[in-house]
Design a binder for these strands. Structure first.
Lengths: 221, 221
DNA sequence: TTTAAAATTTAGATATGTCTAAAAAATAAT
DNA sequence: ATTATTTTTTAGACATATCTAAATTTTAAA
């Protein structure tokens, strides 16, 4: 089935919200994610329901069907593979690739996606540490990740992922030398605003709760 | 200015027809090229005229403005660079890349185009021998090409280009071992249907006028 | 449990890109 | 120079994806 770019973006957004919440996605939440109005969302939910890509009952929110989930994973796969290409082959920074990958993820050709994957050496994660589903939509098993914002004083770990999408956030990480794979330690946690004092690469940094919630680590020791 | 995919496709089609004929492009010719109706074309011509991408007088056909030509060349540049990428890096055949490049040519990012060009080593021609404009829309000077269909008995030359777009034509060329760079000689020309007897790589082949009109050579001797 | 607030849907409007059918203009033929 | 034919344009319609404003349903509050 041939989907429009707009339909694909809805499917992707519903998938992303489902991953976060595990629950049914409300019209309003989806409208906010898509930067559009609830009434537009309702129309699209009906259309995608007719195409058997999601289950939707009036006033009850929606969830993806198996078909819908497969399509979402195919888009995520393309997005992340293209990000790897842009960073590894074209020397883009990790803060520059999201908007371009948002366009490239809609290119239709399974052969292209699979050849690109092979050309890149079957990468398992994108430049932000997000896992790349294989041709069957499956993720490799990987160590458990924890949001830095959930960590306690004394916790140590390795940086596994950072949130993709906001260039200014990633540029800030560049500025302080923050990269995937670094060892970090939570020196302290300020209870009143949830901000964290971090030791990394010999430097001491302070992260707001918001920043810490955009960083995932693998706990060690 | 941000153009829709449809607008870009019209600009590209007008550019291609202008290259062929050198004259103003008629509504009907454009409708045929775009596989649409004359009435749809008229609407689009008005819109593109308002955007100063072409000059158009009712019943008089249209030509691109400087702006329009620049956009056309940028699209052609992207199309051909992506074709090189698909063939050189992803191991696609020259018969498989046109449809994918038709999608990729609409990706918006000058930085992407320029980095891709560098990654590919600043190629001057695409896999079908079509020249690639540089960042300023300029073509490198190149030897004069002649359509094989215009050649006479006894002419010799090197294959410089083949028409892009129809997979079955390119697959036919694959089957007979026809490649860019080969030396060929016109052994004979059948006057009643314009078909040619060709010597190439020790083999003798017969090309219909239609096939010969899709092949460009550089004459030698 | 009735009312108030929030969330969601419906109805009607707009813009894009397309179509068909009919009208108008340009070109060719007699 | 009329007439006939072809080309092109206009007018009106449709589908998609969006919006605003109003109506409806659900949820929360009194």
């Amino acid at each position: 089935m041939q989907l429009s770019q707009s339909e694909e973006n809805y499917i992707k957004a519903i998938y992303a919200l489902s991953e976060e919440t595990g629950k049914e996605i409300s019209t309003n939440d989806l409208a906010e994610k898509m930067a559009t109005k609830a009434s537009s969302v309702t129309d699209m939910l009906k259309k995608l329901t007719d195409k058997d890509l999601l289950k939707y009952k009036k006033y009850q929110g929606c969830t993806l069907t198996k078909n819908g989930r497969e399509i979402a994973l195919a888009i995520v796969r393309k997005h992340r593979l293209w990000e790897v290409f842009l960073v590894e082959k074209l020397q883009f920074g990790w803060d520059e690739v999201h908007a371009i990958a948002e366009q490239l993820e809609h290119i239709q050709s399974n052969q292209l996606t699979n050849k690109l994957e092979a050309f890149l050496g079957f990468p398992k994660v994108d430049p932000h540490g997000d896992p790349i589903p294989n041709i069957n939509g499956e993720f490799d098993p990987s160590p458990k990740r924890v949001l830095l914002s959930k960590c306690e004083k004394g916790n140590k770990g390795i940086v596994m992922g950072v949130e993709d999408g906001e260039p200014s956030f990633l540029q800030y990480l560049n500025k302080i030398g923050f990269k995937l794979g670094l060892n970090i330690k939570v020196e302290d946690r300020l209870s009143f605003d949830g901000s964290l004092i971090i030791e990394m690469d010999g430097k001491t940094l302070q992260f707001s709760h918001l920043v810490a919630s955009k960083i995932a680590i693998q706990l060690i020791d």
